[in-house]
């Protein structure tokens, strides 16, 4: 089971690097915002898998909830800033 979780975590980390390409080289700022929020969702799943790994799911669920929340608020704030700046 642990090996399975490690493989899944590694695959998700590789996907994070794929999305990171869009953040660094992405044309335009909207691609970057969307890519950052995609990285946020992947980090959330990785955190919960860590929780299973260390047998403390309830603690990691708290952390991942905060992560998702701040990800959402940051995304909305960036979009709103761009909207008003034109």
């Amino acid at each position: 089971m642990n090996n399975f979780l490690i493989v899944i975590t590694l695959a998700l980390c590789l996907l994070v690097f794929v999305v990171l390409y869009r953040v660094v080289f992405g044309p335009g700022v909207f691609n970057r915002i969307a890519a950052i929020s995609a990285i946020g969702t992947k980090t959330l799943v990785i955190l919960i898998i860590f929780g299973y790994f260390y047998n403390r799911v309830e603690m990691f669920i708290d952390i991942s909830l905060v992560y998702a929340l701040l990800n959402f608020i940051g995304c909305v704030a960036a979009a709103k800033y761009l909207e008003t700046e034109g």
Binding site: M59, D62, I63, V66, L69, L70, I73, V76, A77, K80
Partner: peptide, 23 residues
């Protein structure tokens, strides 16, 4: 008992107000 505490909770509470302000 769990991760967090005064500072983190305060940041989330402030973030909820910021979200309300933005939207």
């Amino acid at each position: 008992y769990s991760p967090g505490g005064g500072f983190q909770g305060g940041v989330i509470l402030g973030a909820s107000m910021v979200l309300l302000f933005i939207t």
